[in-house]
């Protein structure tokens, strides 16, 4: 490896470690990397290019995330950083790791199941999967509404502990 590419490698690792401190404003328990929002980091000439993708088309957090990225990088003297937004491939909850899903559960949000488990021939595939209550782990839960506190969540209730909770919709 020549010196130039070695420097780039070191710089990239540094940038990634900075990006690992940036969380989703709506789900502060997870970083944008754990959410699968962060799609890539490149260094083009002197510019750091960070590629991100929105969870939902109308996700209001995406502008905040863009600002957070440029601010965090500027603090570490990456002044000419640029954030690129891509739509394709479309974001999927399958990009969340098992650790990330466990963090979600501990935060009080039921994590999404793998999208491959959804039976699209069903009129409402969501109610055919079993969603565990993040509070008491009971499987006796029911869908209250397809739409919860944000676009990415549906609203459920546990019929054992009676607590209402959000379920991260598998998409």
């Amino acid at each position: 490896m020549d010196l130039m590419s070695k420097n780039t490698e070191i710089q990239l690792a540094h940038v990634r470690s900075i990006l690992d401190t940036i969380t989703d404003p709506e789900i502060p328990a997870l970083t944008i990397n754990e959410m699968g929002i962060l799609r890539g980091v490149e260094i083009e000439a002197d510019t750091v290019v960070v590629t991100i993708t929105p969870t939902y088309s109308g996700c209001p957090a995406i502008d905040q995330i863009t600002d957070d990225i440029t601010a965090a990088l500027a603090k570490h003297d990456y002044l000419s950083a640029r954030v690129a937004l891509v739509l394709s491939p479309a974001w999927t909850t399958d990009w969340m790791s098992d650790e990330a899903k466990e963090k979600l559960r501990q935060y009080g949000i039921a994590p999404p199941c793998k999208t491959s488990l959804l039976d699209d021939s069903q009129e409402d595939p969501d109610v055919t999967v079993i969603v565990a209550c993040p509070n008491c782990c009971s499987f006796n839960t029911q869908l209250v509404s397809h739409f919860g506190s944000t676009a990415c969540k549906s609203f459920w209730q546990c019929t054992d502990c009676l607590e209402p909770f959000d379920y991260f919709k598998p998409i």
Partner: peptide, 20 residues
């Protein structure tokens, strides 16, 4: 209340699509 949230969430998806 749930319906209030649902209809405006659908609206939010639609405005996101409209913006793109």
């Amino acid at each position: 209340l749930e319906e209030d949230i649902a209809l405006t969430n659908i609206g939010l998806d639609l405005i996101g699509q409209a913006r793109s």
